[in-house]
Design a binder for these strands. Structure first.
Length: 412
RNA sequence: GUGGCUGUAGCUCAAUUGGUCAGAGCUUCUGAUUGUGGUUCAGAAGGUUGCGGGAUCGUUCCCCGUCAGCCACCCCA
């Protein structure tokens, strides 16, 4: 027997209804904000991610599914932003539409060790708004994220925000760290010693208390932000307050991807355990230029669909179903039944029947299990009268209806 | 990638110190006199106890390996 490869999941009909609700809710809310959908390939040149996420990030170094062919190395996308900025530029959207608001829904791939809330194929619902550096965009994007959560029926989340500063600020902070860090290095945990080489800023959000103490003795907090970045961040916070969005400023919040600058945010939920971030995002003002485009500000975020669905009571309600179940008795009725089924479906009435030659009792059970609202019974008695018995399953009432009136009867 | 825990029917779990213990509930299927569901009752089906070694007269229960899942770290959505 074949098995799923580790870290992937089959989403069975029982669950797909929740997925459809999440997706439909998201699409509806995106439309209120005038975001339009973009779909890009799940594969890209591997070097695209190298360039955008950062060559030393764990995702690029260890977690990409690579596909080697004779000439190139492709990667299954580990996230959406890089592909979308690539597509934005390749299709000249900066020339044809200038400021652009896009959303995407689809699978992402990372070769991590599977865990609850961490799969090797998982799904993002995200947005990218490209072409503005204004704080009003940061505010809209974060409020959109919260609006989605409300739409999904999720409560009890926490919005954490921070500003990394512009590229210069980030570099200055990194440089300061690299200068003052070497003497402290032996006192840091093993992970932080590694971070010191790869991604110095991540030392800021180490959970180890000793590391935290050492970091505090170094230059940290928002003191490294230049006046422009500081003003921008203040404006964002004011805007969020004006909208009544409650958030928490977390100076240690550092996103793991290189392209982020200025505003970053993360939304966590305490009911999820170790992998508690249900969504995150931020600004990436230099990414468009980095990929060969003009100087354009941009901001985005993504939710992890699997993680959203882990939140208790989120989107569990199944919409009431309407189904008509046809039971036929005997050969003559069976062939007449095929036509009736066809007519019902053409009239857009969901209809099904028994395919196992069950007894009437067995077929009734099957109808009940299928959630039928009405059962149609067609036997010799009915055939003679050109009629059919219609049973309302909710209240067990039954009546005979002429075949010519059947659809009208079921429509109301 | 690191550490720990777990792995018995489709699902949730039992099985005294290794010796008729491979079981229950739910699910599924079939019946309960003629063409009627949900409740109830009866019966049936379903397991090489994750897989592979080892120790033992003998193991679901012990040891080793392996795979998978879970938890934490790491990483991140």
């Amino acid at each position: 027997m074949f098995k799923r490869i580790p870290g992937t999941k089959d989403i069975l009909p029982e669950e797909t209804s929740s997925w459809q609700t999440v997706e439909a809710t998201a699409r509806r809310i995106f439309s209120f904000y005038n975001y339009r959908e973009i779909r890009t390939p799940v594969m890209e040149e591997a070097s695209l991610f190298n360039r955008t996420l950062g060559a030393t990030t764990e995702i690029v170094q260890k977690q990409m599914f690579l596909i080697h062919n004779q000439e190139d190395t492709y990667a299954l996308r580990p996230e959406g932003t890089a592909s979308i900025v690539r597509s934005y530029l390749e299709n000249n959207l900066e020339k044809t539409s200038g400021f652009t608001k896009l959303y995407y829904i689809g699978p992402m791939f990372r070769l991590e060790r599977p865990q609850k809330g961490r799969l090797r194929q998982f799904h993002h619902i995200g947005v990218e708004a490209i072409g503005s550096t204004l704080a009003s965009l940061d505010i809209e994007v974060i409020s959109l994220a919260e609006q989605l959560l409300k739409g999904f029926g999720i409560t009890g989340y926490q919005i954490k925000i921070n500003s990394l500063g512009c590229q210069k600020d980030k570099q200055a902070l990194s440089a300061a760290f690299k200068k003052s860090l070497p003497e402290k290095l032996p006192q840091l945990c093993a992970d932080c010693q590694r971070r010191a080489k790869n991604n110095v800023l991540r030392i800021l959000d180490c959970k180890n208390e000793d590391c935290q103490k050492i970091v505090k003795t170094l230059e940290a907090g928002h003191t490294h932000l230049c006046p422009d970045c500081r003003n921008h961040f203040e404006e964002v916070k004011r805007g969020l307050n004006d909208l009544g969005i409650s958030f928490q400023v977390v100076p240690q919040l550092v996103r793991g991807l290189d392209y982020y600058n200025r505003t970053v945010f993360e939304i966590t939920h305490s009911d999820l355990g170790s992998q508690d971030a249900i969504g995150a995002g931020g600004r990436y003002n230099d990414l468009v230029r980095e990929l060969g485009g003009p100087e354009l500000g941009a901001m985005g975020f993504a939710f992890g669909v699997e993680r959203l669905l882990l939140v208790p009571n989120a989107l569990r309600q199944n919409p009431p179903k309407k189904l008509v179940y046809l039971i036929t008795l005997g050969e003559a009725a069976k062939s007449a039944g095929i036509k009736i089924l066809n007519q019902l479906r053409n009239a857009e009435i969901p209809a099904d029947t028994d395919y196992l030659n069950k007894s009437l009792k067995g077929a009734m059970r099957a109808a009940n299990d299928a959630g039928a609202t009405f059962v149609l019974i067609l036997g010799d008695d009915e055939l003679k009268k050109h009629a059919i018995s219609v049973k309302d399953m909710a209240n067990s009432t039954q009546k005979e209806v002429f075949l010519q009136n059947l659809i009208q009867e079921l429509k109301c």
